[in-house]
């Protein structure tokens, strides 16, 4: 492109990019569009295939699937109320433990309480927590956690047995240890996302609060956490999705009992763990019922995600 080209105004407006480059740019657009669509297609095809597989069971049980607490392959009688209860309660236990622990750790790691170098090491350790395979968590749960929760659960049952959640003596594996292991597994998600959203707040906010005579803790609780709440909630909801879908660790610790029991000291089961346990030996209507259970799990996580989106938007709307 020499200087003389610029005297011709038409040419400047037409551009000097070669047709090949333009085609390539266009092609790249189609390529990325293809990638984006294929993600949607994968999701839809999974949902459709599961729905088709579940169809015989849907026809057979319809909504009684949600009210029946029996899961009996011998009599071909299936219901998921017990495993839905197990899925939700074990996830809730994990959230109750992981939210304060995770947000607290995130606050600590985003403040300058300790030198930068030590903080970097701690952040790395938190990330390592996410790298531990779930089967290892399961092993740890069986050999370390369950003996502890059995002692603790016995005490709970003896002293607070009148409370429905603690109304049975612990049987070893059960909802409580499963919830605790799940909480450790979802901690890294909550910590990482909460820390990121706290760290990305403008430093002005902190200075403004301190400049008004607020202490560090007032600043954290009244300004920083409320300002980062949409990020924190997003992390919590992601974590909840993870907890509900976690299979291996849950199956190893929860006791795999399909009987509905309110007590968290009793063995229970989650949808994911039920499917993992039974699929290998299932046949006929049982396969279909498992597919149906899988569909229910997908719906549950979908509801959680929509709820999360809704809550995050509600909280955000107040601020912007």
């Amino acid at each position: 492109m020499t200087q003389s080209d610029y005297s011709n105004t038409d040419k400047i407006m037409m551009g000097e990019r070669s047709p090949l480059e333009k085609t390539f740019d266009q092609g790249f657009r189609w390529l990325t569009l293809g990638f984006a669509i294929s993600i949607g297609l994968i999701l839809i095809s999974i949902a459709v295939i599961i729905a088709v597989g579940a169809f015989p069971a849907i026809k057979q049980f319809n909504f009684s699937f949600f009210t029946n607490s029996n899961w009996n392959p011998v009599t071909d009688e299936y219901g998921v109320i017990a495993v839905i209860y197990g899925t939700i309660v074990s996830s809730l236990i994990s959230l109750i433990i992981a939210i304060p622990l995770g947000v607290g750790a995130a606050v600590f790691l985003s403040e300058d309480f300790i030198p930068e170098q030590i903080r970097t090491v701690l952040v790395f350790l938190v990330e390592l927590l996410a790298a531990i395979p779930s089967v290892v968590y399961g092993l740890w749960g069986i050999f370390v956690l369950i003996p502890i929760t059995t002692v603790f659960g016995t005490w709970l049952n003896q002293n607070f047995g009148w409370f429905p959640l603690f109304s049975s003596p612990p049987a070893g594996p059960g909802m409580l240890p499963a919830g605790i292991v799940l909480s450790i597994m979802i901690l890294p998600i909550i910590i990482a996302i909460s820390r990121d959203s706290l760290a990305s707040l403008p430093p002005d906010l902190r200075q403004a609060s301190l400049g008004l005579g607020a202490t560090r803790w007032e600043t954290i609780f009244r300004v920083l956490i409320p300002a980062a709440i949409s990020g924190i909630m997003g992390g919590v909801m992601l974590a909840l999705g993870r907890a509900m879908g976690e299979t291996m660790a849950a199956t190893m610790i929860i006791g795999n009992s399909n009987r509905l029991s309110i007590s968290i000291l009793d063995p229970a089961n989650t949808i994911a763990s039920l499917i993992a346990n039974q699929f290998a030996e299932a046949s006929g209507l049982q396969i279909s019922a498992l597919m149906y259970a899988g569909l229910v799990l997908m719906l549950l996580t979908l509801i959680v995600n929509i709820l999360a989106e809704y809550i995050v938007n509600q909280v955000k709307a107040k601020y912007e």
Binding site: G211, G213, A214, P226, E320
Partner: peptide
């Protein structure tokens, strides 16, 4: 000794809560 900063930096709160903040923490 209060401070006003270079860029406006209201808290992500309502106008009322922004003004009341200093009084509340004090």
């Amino acid at each position: 000794i209060g401070m006003v900063f270079q860029r406006p930096n209201p808290f992500p709160k309502t106008i009322y809560d922004n003004v009341a903040y200093g009084a509340r923490v004090n």
